[in-house]
Amino acid sequence: MTEKVKLYDLSKCTGCRACQLACKQWNQLPAKQTHNMGTYQNPSDLQPNTWNLIRFQEVSDGNGGVKWMFRHDACMHCTDAACVRVCPSGALSHTKYGTVAFDQAKCIGCKECISACPFEVPRYDPEKDKIAKCDMCFSRIDNGLEPACVKACPTGALRFGDKDEMLKLAYKRAKELGGDASVYGDKFVGGTHMIYVLPEKASVYDRLPENPRVPLSIIAWKDWLKPLSLLAAGGVLAGSLFHYIIHGPKDTGGDDDQASQEGGK
């Protein structure tokens, strides 16, 4: 199956938040009471009931003016997904499209994915004791539709299609934009399935890691310690067996004491 990619061109995003709402509608995510904290951005962060969020950010343009930037923040759907690596229950898994699906029924609320994700995407829902995140509308894409957010986007900032085609478009657009523009997503964690076209350097954007990767601690845990502990466990099991057979049990009995025989049983 061809890998699918959601392409997000920040230069075309107007921050209308149709994507944020369409996501809630398709996935039937309830609204929660919020308050204006001095910004249009609301809710203030991704939440169990907010799987994609437009981040509003103002930066100086260097000429006394201002730039107002909008970023559609949601699961990046990594190929080498830390969340999938750590998920104990298989709730998080890769689909045939390369996206990271999430099966809430399987989730045990262990929150390991939350700390593993280099993009800080999964959110814990204490009411359900489960996590939640964007699954790129698997129910839609598996039926030949684009994700709800893409469907709702009026400007074409969000697009959806085959990976090769989307990457081609992304590089073409980045080239058109020139300057600091770049394609973000294809060069790390095995390639993400949400690809950004960033008009500015990645470091300019709030909460966007410059060099995201599967954390060393997760590699240490999953790639080293897990096999090692299996090895060690197996080792002692085998070792004990061989010890018993070759070396034999320790003789703790005495001629003077019968009880030892029974005690040893």
């Binding site: 845990w221 310690l225 897990k226 090692l228 502990s229 060690a232 466990a233 080792g235 002692v236 099991l237 070792g239 004990s240 010890h243 018993y244 049990p249 320790k250 003789d251 703790t252 009995g253 030892s260 005690g263 040893g264 049983k265």
Partner: peptide, 25 residues
């Protein structure tokens, strides 16, 4: 995970020696 890596072997040796490895224990 490191804790498991360390504790399990010790635990198992303890179990072994506490039973058939050292009879009478």
């Amino acid at each position: 995970a490191l804790g498991f890596f360390v504790i399990f072997p010790f635990f198992f040796v303890h179990l072994y020696l506490g039973t058939i490895g050292v009879p009478g224990s």
